[in-house]
């Protein structure tokens, strides 16, 4: 289990993380989202031990990820901008992983076939997508307990995404690994993640099980005989509200049954309930805090 408590990080005078706390359970895939510059990559780098937090704590299975070398051996970090020295090939990169991690040759061969990567390929002449595949390939072959993918899922073509999803599912089943994926393509993340974390202004805005959270937020479309005002729904936790004459569309947080009961009290002539996607959940959460403007 990954435990993050009250994490603070500043770059000079700019505070990026202002007290991030969250927990990632074993076998969970967390989608880490937020607007640009909110600190997603910074958070992942701190977990990976690349950056040092100003204050706060990051522990994986009860061991500090900055000080404990053994626990760091079980963290695979794939940066948004993978580094490959000039002239390096897929094979030459293997030396680093063989020397420093619990590198599994058999897994490497298996995944290499799945990702369709040739050992002799020059890394510097590869496309961005291929480079990401190589980074993922190595990250998956070191028997990690925690995989950190910084925008590494974005930009993969659908087939590669599907293959990665399959591999991760297998790893979660077999080795109970945890995964944190940061990205901007929420539709893609929704496919793979079972939990989410929305960062906003350096703190965790919302965090939890994706299905549960989505089950707690719904889109309601209703119509009344005569025009109605927003004040009529003052008892509801409305994330988004729009009205066209007698028709109201709103996104409300809360149990579907309770909200439906509340709305029925106003005698609507029509009431539809629709589920929200992860992207909508993210957008409405931000909108409710004034980001949409």
């Amino acid at each position: 289990m990954l435990r993050i408590e009250n994490l603070h990080k500043s770059f000079g005078t700019a505070a990026v993380l202002k007290g991030v706390s969250m927990t990632v359970n074993d076998g969970s895939i967390v989608g880490l989202v937020g607007v640009n510059g909110v600190g997603k990559s910074t958070l992942l780098r701190i977990i990976a031990g690349v950056y040092r937090a100003d204050t706060g704590m990051v522990q994986l299975n009860g061991r500090d990820t900055w000080y404990d070398e053994e626990i760091r051996r079980s963290i695979a970090f794939v940066s948004d901008e993978p580094y490959y020295p000039a002239g390096s090939t897929v094979a030459s990169l293997r030396l680093l992983y063989q020397s420093m991690y619990d590198f599994d040759e058999a897994l490497f061969e298996e995944y290499r076939q799945i990702f369709g990567i040739d050992l002799k390929m020059s890394l510097t002449s590869m496309s961005k997508g291929m480079k990401k595949r190589v980074s993922l390939l190595y990250a998956l072959c070191i028997h990690p307990k925690l995989i950190l993918l910084d925008e590494a899922y974005d930009g993969l073509e659908p087939l590669a995404r599907l293959r990665l999803k399959k591999i991760l599912s297998g790893m979660i089943e077999d080795e109970n690994v945890s995964v944190i994926i940061s990205g901007h393509n929420l539709r893609e993340l929704e496919d793979i993640c079972d939990a989410f974390c929305i960062l906003e202004d350096g703190v965790v805005l919302s965090y939890g099980d994706l299905l549960e959270s989505k089950g707690n937020v719904h889109k309601y479309q209703a119509a009344w005989v005569s025009e109605i005002t927003r004040e009529a729904f003052s008892g509801l936790d409305i994330l988004h509200y729009e009205q066209e004459g007698r028709v109201v569309r709103m996104v409300v947080r809360g149990s579907e049954e309770q909200v439906r009961e509340e709305l029925k009290k106003t005698d609507p002539v029509l009431l539809d309930v629709l589920p929200v996607s992860f992207e909508e959940l993210f957008l409405y959460e931000l909108e409710s805090r004034g980001y949409a403007e």
Binding site: V50, E69, Y83
Partner: peptide, 15 residues
């Protein structure tokens, strides 16, 4: 001195 390479080498399991 390079962000991408610093990510790789400072994430290694060594203090």
């Amino acid at each position: 001195h390079r962000r991408s390479s610093a990510d790789r080498f400072f994430a290694l399991p060594v203090s």
